[in-house]
Structures are given as structure tokens and as C-alpha cells.
């Protein structure tokens, strides 16, 4: 197995790991971290794709750079929101889904 393929599979494994944590963990910060792990998995996959040929492919690099910017701002927003959720509800967890008639 070539190195890029290994990195690509590891990236997909990271994605799966993050997905599991996103669903299984209740704490908001854990969920946000999980999303970041998923993001990192995708980025790793893309870098692996870029490393396939003799000359590194520039397009995935551009994608990853942009993706990182997006991920950082999303994380910032998520953390800010998580703080407010904790301030309002006392816990940094998602409230139970509102029952339809609440």
C-alpha cells in the first residue's frame, strides 16, 4: 500500500471516528471537537489525493486552505454559541428536543 493511500484511509477513519463522537458525546465542546476531527479527516484525505502524482497537485491544497478558514470560523461560532447555551441553561449540553406541544 502506498503512503498516499494509507493517508487517505486514515483520513476516512478520522472522519468515522469524529462522526461516532459527534453522536455519542453529549458535551457540546466534545461535539465541536468531533466536528473538527471529521474536518481534519477530510483535509488529510485531500492532501493524500494531492500527493498521488509526481508533482503535487495544487488544487487540493487550495481546497484545504479554504476549508481550514471555513472550519476555524465555524468552530468560533460554535464555541460562542455553546457558551451562551451554557449561560442560558446552566449546562453545555443540548437541551432535550422540544416536545411538539411544548
Amino acid at each position: 500500500m502506498t503512503a498516499p493511500a494509507l493517508y487517505a484511509l486514515a483520513g476516512i477513519a478520522l472522519f468515522g471516528l469524529g462522526l461516532h463522537a459527534l453522536i455519542a458525546r453529549a458535551h457540546l465542546v466534545a461535539k465541536i471537537l468531533a466536528l473538527n476531527v471529521m474536518g481534519a479527516g477530510v483535509f488529510m484525505f485531500l492532501i493524500a489525493v494531492a500527493a498521488r502524482g509526481e508533482i503535487p497537485d495544487p488544487v487540493p491544497h487550495a481546497l484545504v486552505l479554504t476549508g481550514i478558514v471555513v472550519a476555524v470560523s465555524a468552530t468560533a461560532l460554535a464555541l460562542a454559541l455553546a457558551l451562551r447555551v451554557r449561560a442560558a441553561g446552566g449546562r453545555a449540553e443540548l437541551p432535550e428536543q422540544e416536545s411538539p406541544d411544548a
Binding site: I12, F15, L19, L22, L28, K31, L35, M38, G39, G41, V42, F45, L46, V49, P60, L63, G67, A74, L77, A78, L81, A82, R84, V85, A88, G89, L94, P95, Q97, E98
Partner: peptide, 24 residues
Amino acid sequence: ALGAAMRYLLVSLLGSLAFLLGVA
């Protein structure tokens, strides 16, 4: 509303990442 927004954000990000993996 904050709880709803948080849930919306998580769903939205998860959706985006699934999309991004597909793009990759």
C-alpha cells in the same frame, strides 16, 4: 432558541462535512 440554534449548527456542519468528503 439558543438550543435550537446549536442543534441547527451541529446538523449543518455535519451536513457540510459529509458534502465535503463527497467532493474530495
